[in-house]
């Protein structure tokens, strides 16, 4: 246990010194300030928006869910940036620089070493994601007096998505150099987002081919599916035209959802970590 704390602390200190946190905090502050401004303008003008008389759209819910969806997307993005920069060089990068060897020859065990680095990054990213998500919720509540039907679960799903990205990034760091690994993880992340958007388009066009491709991508990259499920939850009580319009938008929510994908995500995470431990145990340093 003390070894876990020592290694996790080592990683944490590295992140502080490399100014990873400083950069992310500045970016986050800028995002939250802009987000507050957007909410402020949207909700003060809400009363001036009048849909045609025969169209029944709940403009406050529509605006709230749309803005929260945007916030969730940004939180996921910033969380993934943090996750990747905390972990992209955990094995190859640190080994190339000669930082890893003195640690590996200590009687700690490679599995403990790797999992400690994972845990350290996971704790940091979970706290970060929940904090940003919580602040975004508070901003929407304060400016627009709207809260989603489900508040905690979407945040946890976002955090879960980021934790999966951490596991993938650590797994990648065993076989790829830092730069290649960073590129690979961001490409996967981008592919996941694209697949999610494609799914929305597929449903709007009623194209089964696109829907299937999107569904397969959601299972292959479950961080994306968790994020989509979170989007689904924040608009789960919308119905009629409001719900229909939200579904059409970029933050439309999941078509693969519920406990199936949540359990699959846990299994996926465990497999990624187990593969990481296996590859690391066989890697020459």
């Amino acid at each position: 246990m003390s070894a876990v704390l020592t290694i996790a602390g080592y990683g944490f200190r590295e992140a502080v010194r490399r100014k990873v946190f400083a950069v992310v905090i500045v970016l986050t502050a800028a995002f939250l300030a802009l987000f507050w401004l957007a909410n402020h303008y949207v909700f003060t003008r809400l009363s001036t928006i009048t849909p045609p008389a025969d169209v029944h759209v709940d403009t406050r819910t529509f605006a709230g869910a749309f803005l929260l969806g945007l916030a969730m997307f940004s939180t996921l993005f910033l969380g993934v940036v943090l996750a990747v920069f905390l972990t992209l060089g955990v094995v190859s990068g640190d080994a190339e620089r000669g930082l890893l060897q003195p640690l590996v020859v200590r009687p700690v065990g490679r599995a403990t070493l790797l999992l400690s680095r994972f845990l350290g990054a996971a704790v940091v990213c979970i706290v970060y994601v929940l904090a940003v998500y919580g602040i975004a919720l508070a901003i929407i509540d304060q400016t627009g007096h709207w809260t989603p039907p489900s508040t905690l679960a979407p945040g946890l799903e976002l955090a879960g998505g980021v934790v999966i990205v951490i596991a993938l990034s650590i797994l990648g760091s065993i076989v790829l150099s830092s730069t290649a690994n960073g590129i690979a993880v961001f490409m996967l992340f981008g592919a996941g987002l694209t697949a999610g958007l494609l799914g929305t388009i597929g449903h709007a066009l009623n194209s089964t081919t696109i829907q299937h491709a999107s569904r397969d991508a959601a299972w292959a990259l479950p961080f994306e599916a968790l994020y989509q499920d979170g989007l689904r939850l924040i608009s789960s009580n919308t119905s009629g035209l409001t719900g229909f319009l939200l579904q059409l938008g970029p933050f439309g929510g999941a078509y693969v959802h519920g406990w199936g994908i949540r359990l699959w995500s846990v299994a996926y995470l465990l497999v990624a970590l187990a593969l990481g431990v296996l590859f690391f145990s066989r890697r020459d340093l």
Binding site: Y10, R13, E14, R17, R97, G98, L99, Q101, P102, V105
Partner: peptide
């Protein structure tokens, strides 16, 4: 162990 190429933070 002292490695041939190593670095401390």
């Amino acid at each position: 162990y002292l490695a041939e190429l190593f670095r401390f933070p």
